[in-house]
């Protein structure tokens, strides 16, 4: 869990309170497993981290799926009531700098009224810094997700080989993913066809952790371009110099700027030439998860 790293980053950037709307951020800092809903959602205060107390507060009507060291606050359909509950958490009302990972006009008005001395600052930068390096435990989660992605891909490619149409392949792959106990996709399988070549991309979210794999049938081995790109995933290399589409993976998709330098412990989705893998950057050779 990245709570300690989040508190370190908050200290470094002098942020008193972090109010998070993005589910991946809430998941990363709290470990809470709330019901998965696909799609982008507008900011709403779903998780609060307070520097002064070191406490993580999670919005939930129940403690089911919420680790015992996280605190709960109850939901409301009234945004003013909800902000009132957030402001009442110990250490929030006196905050000077409040980090948020997004905002809406309504929550901006309510938060600035409820926490009157605070300025709202970029909280996503804190979460990005705290989440980019994965701990060994987190790598284990990603490795387990990668195993589900791999077996889901095998079923999808089998469907392609049998001549199924796109929706038939998606149906089989999603069924196979869920049959392994993972009922949430990072994205639903994507299929593109160019003549005899069929490219399939699979992404799973297992226990909230993502892994992706892309292959092009009929030649399902890694193409030389991907092998070369993965081989460039060394500490110190800039994302732009990997020579592939690259983003981070963790509790979902992690955007990386082109000039970001790789470090050991970063986990990347690397794809090029119709193929892609989830890759762990290490001190030595990169490891394909």
């Amino acid at each position: 869990m990245s709570k300690e790293r989040v508190l370190d980053e908050m200290g470094r950037r002098e942020v008193d309170v972090l109010i998070l709307g993005r589910e991946g951020n809430a998941r990363a800092v709290s470990g809470a497993h709330r019901l998965f809903l696909a799609g982008e959602r507008a900011f709403s205060p779903g998780c609060v981290v307070v520097a002064e107390t070191g406490a993580v507060h999670v919005l939930s009507v129940t403690d089911f799926g919420v680790p015992a060291d996280a605190h709960l606050y109850p939901p409301s359909w009234n945004p003013a009531t909800l902000v009132g509950r957030v402001a009442a958490l110990p250490g929030v009302r006196s905050a000077k700098r409040v980090g948020v990972d997004g905002i809406t006009p309504l929550f901006e008005a309510l938060l600035t009224a409820a926490v009157p001395d605070a300025s709202l600052v970029d909280g996503e930068a804190i979460m990005r810094a705290a989440r980019r390096i994965k701990s060994p435990d987190e790598v284990d989660h990603l490795r387990a997700a990668a195993a589900v992605a791999r077996s889901t891909m095998a079923v999808a490619l089998n469907g392609v080989a049998r001549g199924l149409d796109d929706s038939g392949v998606v149906a089989l792959a999603m069924e196979a993913m869920a049959a392994e106990g993972t009922t949430t996709a990072a994205f639903e399988p994507r299929i593109s066809r160019a003549g005899q070549r069929v490219t399939v991309a699979v992404g799973v979210l297992r226990d909230g952790w993502e892994a992706d794999v892309t292959r092009t049938a009929p030649e399902v081995d890694r193409p030389a371009e991907l092998v070369a790109a993965i081989a460039r995933c060394h500490p110190g290399v800039a994302v732009a110099d990997v020579g592939a589409d690259v983003h981070g993976v963790g509790c979902g998709y992690e955007a990386l700027p082109a000039d970001e330098r790789l470090e050991p412990g970063m986990v990347l989705s690397v794809s090029v030439a119709g193929a892609g893998d989830t890759v762990l950057v290490t001190e030595d050779a990169p490891e394909v998860l």
């Binding site: 993005r22 589910e23 991946g24 998965f36 809903l37 696909a38 799609g39 982008e40 959602r41 949430t184 996709a185 990072a186 994205f187 639903e188 994507r190 992404g203 979210l205 993502e210 983003h247 509790c251 979902g252 998709y253 992690e254 955007a255």
Partner: peptide, 14 residues
């Protein structure tokens, strides 16, 4: 209509 995907990817590729 955006494809169905987890929230962070949906946000980053919106």
């Amino acid at each position: 209509a955006a494809p169905s995907q987890e929230p962070a990817r949906a946000g980053a590729t919106r």
